[in-house]
Design a binder for these strands. Structure first.
Lengths: 240, 240
DNA sequence: CGAGGGTTTGAAGTGCATCAAATAGTGTGG
DNA sequence: CCACACTATTTGATGCACTTCAAACCCTCG
């Protein structure tokens, strides 16, 4: 498959571009570039001039900001299928955070100017962007809430619930998508705290932990533990 | 002035409606209602069906969510000129939080269906909503960051910086817009913590506190203290 | 003046961070 | 396939920041 065809495919899978005509897809694809990155590679840094936005096609990308003394705050860690850097159109053309690969990552880079034109010219596109943004916003709202109402173990449990799948035995299986210390930073805690909080969670819910795989008899053990300190009702995995 | 005229005036002042033609303003005004509320009065509660959105014309409105046991997380506290409940169009027609008056408050209530129509029919409107939402989002992002990187005193200082005005003597004057305990909840801390953190801030920066009024020799004392633990550079009061 | 909220202060407890060190896990080259 | 090097994770000990509960204080307003 040619690179262009590949790019078209990737773009076509984006919910944001679902309502777009083929003509736009062609235009985007013509100017897109696939970038392969290895762990730690930086795509752009905070407040740099924003020329491109990115669509993740493989791996996980960490968004973060850091203070002068190097302490960093993780904004989010995004999986394949998500975009980043696209909000720069609203932020004086500057990236609002830094972005780096957490492992072997593949992204599609697209010029941000196209986005802007598209918003102005195609109302359906603006609408679909509005929807995407609203969804993300309500997720971030919840994030703030969790940081104030939940303790470390509950945040971990809540994070797991969003990843949980029920297997054929009726057991709940959870696979952490990346390193524990990365999960820790995503949840705003130290790796040491994560480790200790996880063992507390383990003894509270009877879950079995082996590396990044967690097995649990049923959801209830976990929801009873976590969702007490949350204002939403389980099931709440409206990530889509 | 008639109520309708009054309502039109209020709507006209909303950045969100700046680009809208008079015809829409008329339509909105015809269906708007002014509501006066006293302290503690609830406009709507979390997950209730969303029929109206609101524009604050006087006073402050607290947005919050609460867990089953009554613990509450303050999402935001909004001043006159801001809207709330408007994001429900993207949240299955449910309010994503509860809203109550923090004091004597006046709001304009408008049917949410109009918003939805407007987005679909007028691209400029969708764009302006997109911009509003993006701005708010970057604010909330910063909020998350502050909760992880700043301690209580720094959060208070940062909150003050956004309210600071320089007076004719070159002094910096800050007036807390509402009760200290409300500020505390807005910043995600207990009133007691606020009180103690404020005195620490006082001795660290040499500020003078009398009730809700704070006077400071210059910005630098405060920025040096707070902005160390932030990834943005002062001045950062891009609230608009 | 007195009632009631808001605010401050004190004492004690909890949770998370930090620093340091041990252990488990992973991938590499021999 | 093993040993080594390196990283991720766990564990321990200690300290600090914030919370909690309790009580005093202050301020305002009827």
């Amino acid at each position: 498959m040619s690179e262009i065809e590949n790019i078209k495919l990737v773009i076509g899978e984006q919910p944001l571009f679902h309502e777009c005509r083929g003509e736009l897809i062609d235009r985007l694809a013509a100017r897109g570039r696939i970038i392969k990155a290895t762990k730690g590679q930086v795509f752009f840094i905070h407040s740099e001039e924003a020329l491109n936005f990115y669509v993740i096609t493989k791996g996980w990308v960490k968004l973060f900001r850091e203070t002068l003394d190097g302490t960093q705050a993780v904004v989010d860690i995004l999986p394949a299928g998500h975009m980043f850097g696209e909000t720069s159109i609203f932020e004086n053309e500057e990236y609002p955070y830094s972005a780096e690969a957490t492992e072997q990552v593949e992204v599609l880079s697209l010029p941000i100017s196209i986005l802007k034109d598209e918003i102005n010219e195609h109302p359906e596109f603006a609408r679909s962007m509005l929807k995407t943004m609203a969804r993300y916003r309500s997720q971030q709202d919840k994030e703030i809430e969790h940081r104030t109402l939940q303790n470390a173990s509950q945040r971990i449990g809540c994070f797991m619930l969003k990843l949980a799948e029920q297997n054929s035995n009726g057991e709940v299986v959870i696979n952490l998508p990346y390193d524990k210390s990365l999960v820790a930073s995503r949840l705003g805690m130290q790796p040491e705290t994560f480790s200790r909080a996880l063992s507390k969670l383990k003894s509270a819910t009877g879950m079995k932990v082996r590396g990044g795989t967690i097995i649990l008899e049923n959801f209830e053990n976990l929801t009873a533990y976590c969702c007490v300190a949350c204002t939403s009702h389980f099931p709440c995995k409206e990530i889509a």
